[in-house]
């Protein structure tokens, strides 16, 4: 229980920090985003209404009210789900734009991350069990290389090779346009087909960390007395590997995973850009390019909150797996 309260406390604290950072950035940075936004609408010949203008001022601190009043208004808006109006997709609100792109990112990056965690953990256990052999050396060396390579470059090479040269997979986007009226299963197959290359990019880049981390933890636990004692007692190899060595080795790796979710999101974001995948990362770049500050801030906040939530969930799983933590040691 103490553990649970502790984690809730940290979640609340970090959410508050994310909101505050989001509030402070536009006020601390040079230049006025509102000027840029106004100029944008002026040039489009569609001046903003007074309501929208007021909202903008509140969001970006153009008003000369004291900082804490602005802060209060900002937090109040957030709790009502108001993140402002997008400029790029005017008159859509930021919430609506995010609502459209978030599922794509969750689907692609979420699935790819789960695959790479599972695969990396499994291969790490395997490498540790066969430590010192050629398989171990190959796996650790190859993944050491892949995790040192930038995501977007792997993405570019995959697109170039399998998209442009071999034509095995689609080069861009999440699905074929003009797919109106096709049955849902054909649409799903199309989406999966488009997800192969971007998904592979994330798996290739992310798997190395899990593999090496799991392997090294596992090598440590294999040297623990409780593993030797279990072997002495006649516990079978497979059970020894899973319930004694891996079960304990996975705990520190899980903490690493919780902490690294932010990195995964960053990598997924670059991958989306290469593939013009209509997720939240691509949307963030569009927002930056169009100086769509409300959308940009909203996306940053959503990404931050998603990462914090994911971190919280992983910590809870950790608590379930480790009796020492669960009982608040």
């Amino acid at each position: 229980m103490r553990f649970f309260l502790n984690r809730i406390g940290f979640l609340l604290l970090s959410v508050w920090a994310a909101i505050t950072v989001n509030f402070l950035i536009p006020r601390m940075m040079p230049g006025s985003p509102v000027d840029a936004i106004l100029a944008h609408f002026q040039s489009e010949g569609a001046p903003l209404g007074p309501n929208a203008l007021h909202a903008l001022e509140q969001q970006f601190g153009l008003s000369h009210a004291p900082l804490w009043t602005q802060y209060f208004g900002y937090v109040n808006n957030l709790f009502h789900g108001q993140l402002g109006t997008s400029i790029t997709y005017y008159p859509l609100t930021v919430t609506e734009v995010i609502g459209r792109s978030l599922p794509w990112t969750l689907g692609l990056a979420g699935t790819a991350t789960i695959i790479s965690v599972l695969l990396g953990t499994f291969l790490g256990i395997y490498a540790a069990w066969h430590r010192g052999t050629r398989i171990d050396a190959t796996l650790t060396t190859v993944t050491m290389f892949t995790s040192a390579i930038p995501y977007f470059w792997i993405a570019l090479i995959l697109v170039y090779l399998f998209g442009f040269e071999l034509n095995w997979f689609p080069q861009l986007h999440a699905f074929t346009t003009l797919s109106n009226g096709v049955p849902w299963w054909r649409f799903s197959a199309d989406v999966l087909y488009h997800a192969v290359l971007p998904g592979a990019t994330i798996v290739i880049s992310a798997i190395g960390g899990w593999l090496v981390g799991m392997r090294n933890n596992m090598v440590q636990t294999l040297g623990e007395d409780y593993v030797t004692f279990a072997r002495a007692r006649g516990v079978r190899d497979r059970r020894l590997m899973v319930f004694y060595a891996a079960r304990n080795a996975i705990l520190p790796n899980l903490t690493g995973f919780a902490m690294a979710i932010g990195f995964v999101v960053g990598g997924a974001l670059l991958t989306e850009v290469v593939f013009s995948y209509p997720g939240i990362g691509m949307q963030l770049l569009t927002a930056v390019e169009n100086e769509d500050y409300p959308l940009m801030q909203g996306i940053f906040l959503i990404i931050a909150l998603a990462v914090l939530l994911a971190n919280f969930l992983v910590e809870l799983i950790y608590g379930l797996l480790d009796p020492r933590v669960r009982q608040g040691e």
Binding site: E224, D225, Y226, F229, A230, F243, Y244, R247, N248, L321, D322, P323, R324
Partner: peptide, 10 residues
């Protein structure tokens, strides 16, 4: 020798 570590903590 080390009963402290001979039991699996989980």
């Amino acid at each position: 020798q080390s009963a402290m570590n001979a039991l699996n903590p989980v």
